[in-house]
């Protein structure tokens, strides 16, 4: 489903070059569940952003669902993100003025889905993620775990095939983190491809496939 060949990402900071990713080769199959671990600054987030088409590599080739997406235009990238990728962030990134339901609906609104169809999907998502009672609450009125569940529901709204989570439990206590991971794993069991960046070895160990990055290179790839 995903094929990265020789992906490199170099940041320029003043006169210095920071090699965040060095020649990454990686293939991910449909329905895989993988964790990405490694020391701070090893390039985990950068890899995830490249996978999510938020960042462009300086070299290499990225094939997504059999299509070369390395050189797509900005508009085409937005379209692929909208239709096939779901993001989950450490800090949730919910829009504070919108209710939980409206936040979940947002990708569908942007995609121009008809209100009736949206309503149908929203009701299902709210039920699936145990948020029906919270649909009209704003993010400020929700707990961290609930916020992240809203964010996951939002990521799933357009039925993506690739779900990317960058330290989804980083802002949550241990117990809530476990709950959120359970939710993410349900997504995987439903057939989604899930990649999770984490610092927590326990959470990392839950994934069937475990990548370890060190200094921009894949140091370990366990299954």
């Amino acid at each position: 489903m995903i094929r990265l060949t020789g992906i490199a990402r170099v940041f320029r900071v003043g006169d210095e070059e920071v090699h965040a990713l060095r020649g990454i080769n990686l293939a991910i199959e449909q329905g895989e569940y993988l964790s990405i671990m490694g020391p701070s600054g090893s390039g985990k987030s950068t890899l995830l952003n490249v996978l999510g088409l938020l960042d462009r590599p300086n070299a290499g080739r990225y094939e997504l669902n059999g299509r070369d997406v390395t050189h797509l235009s900005d508009d085409e990238l937005a379209r692929v993100r909208r239709e096939t990728i779901g993001f989950i962030f450490q800090s949730f990134h919910l829009v504070p003025r919108l209710t939980a339901g409206q936040n979940i609906e947002l990708p569908m609104v942007l995609a121009g889905l008809a209100p009736a169809e949206r309503r149908r999907r929203l009701d299902r998502l709210l039920a699936d993620y145990g948020l029906t009672a919270r649909a009209d609450h704003r993010p400020a009125q929700l707990s961290g775990g609930q916020c992240q569940r809203v964010a996951i529901a939002r990521a799933m709204a357009m039925g993506p095939t690739l779900i990317l989570a960058d330290e989804p439990t980083g802002n949550l206590d241990r117990h809530t983190g476990q709950e959120v991971m359970a939710v993410l794993e349900r997504v995987h069991q439903d057939g989604g491809t899930v990649a999770v960046v984490t610092h927590d070895p326990e959470i990392g160990a839950r994934a069937r496939r475990r990548l370890r990055l060190i200094d921009g290179e894949i140091a370990e790839d366990k299954r």
Partner: peptide, 9 residues
Amino acid sequence: LLRAIGATQ
């Protein structure tokens, strides 16, 4: 966020 979930420029 809007850009990440698919909004164009």
